[in-house]
Amino acid sequence: MDSTTLRSPIKALNPRKPITVSRETPVQEAILKLQEKHIGCLCVTDDGNLVGMLTERDIYSKVVAGNLDTRETTVGEVMTYDPEYLFHDDHIAFALNRMHVGGFRHIPLINLKGQPTGLVSIRDILGYLVKDM
C-alpha cells in the first residue's frame, strides 16, 4: 500500500446504503432497527436531508447510562448533530483523516442535494487498505 491508494475515491470502498430514521422516531424503534440489521449507526434525516447520526455511542452513553425511557425519547433528542460528511468522489484520505482526527467510526456520504446515500466505516477502510498491501 502506498499513498496512491489513499487518493482513490471513497466509492472504491463500495460503501453500503445507509439506514435512515427521522428525528421524531422513538428511540425504541431505532434500537430495534439497529438490532435487526445488526449495525451500529443510523442516519437521521429531516425532509430527506442528513441532519444527524444515531450511533452505538449515543445509545450507551445517553440512553442506557442515562436510564432514558426509550419509548418516550425521540432520536432527535439523543442523536449526534451536524455529522461530518463526505461525497462518494472524495479521496479515502479524507475519510481516514476524519476518523483519525475526529474519532468517528462511521462517515455518512451524501449527494449534492444533501441526502445520505452511503455510509463508510472504519472497518471498510481498514479492510480495503490491508487487502491492498
Binding site: 452505538e56 450507551y60 442506557v64
Partner: peptide, 16 residues
C-alpha cells in the same frame, strides 16, 4: 463492548 449494550440491553425492560 458497546455492541453488547446495543444488542443485548438497549430497549429491553431489564432493571440494570
Amino acid at each position: 463492548t458497546e455492541r453488547d449494550v446495543l444488542m443485548k440491553i438497549a430497549g429491553s425492560d431489564l432493571n440494570l
